[in-house]
Amino acid sequence: MKDVREALMIGRNSEGKLVRRPLSPFMLGDAYRFQISSLTSILHRITGAALGAGTILLALWLVCAVSGDEAFSIIQAFFASWVGLALLFLFTLALFYHFCNGLRHLAWDAGKGFDLPTMHRTGTLVFVGAIVLTAVFWVIAFLVW
């Protein structure tokens, strides 16, 4: 090994053996057993990217509102169609997941909830919270609509 950049990525594992240090993304590789922490982590990223794509719908909705009555009724009708409803459902599910797990991340950044039992509990709580919030949203939505 003579390349300086590569040499920086060599380390010793707990048995003293020379290994290549894992580079992000590696949580789903052989360095870690699959567990709730890796699942919530990758889902945070996936839902983040999905919500990013969803902002196109947000921008389209606002632009159509400016374009006038006809354009706005077209986009509102699209949201009420099966495809639109499915997209909105996935959007809300992703939003509430990212919201709940984001709160968990902010708690970690404040130095709280790092011990394993708490982390596993809050991880489960994130899934429960996301599903409950999504369900509440759609019950209210169909009542109001």
Binding site: A65, D69, S73, Q76, L95, L103, F137, I140, V144, W145
Partner: peptide, 29 residues
């Protein structure tokens, strides 16, 4: 992180707005 903190109340406000504007016509929007 700071934008995340700001988005906690703002995204809840957005969700409420979406519910209020479900099926709205252009005039209401």
């Amino acid at each position: 992180r700071m934008t995340a903190v700001a988005l906690v109340p703002l995204s809840l406000y957005f969700v409420v707005s979406v519910i209020l504007l479900l099926g709205a016509d252009q005039a209401r929007m």
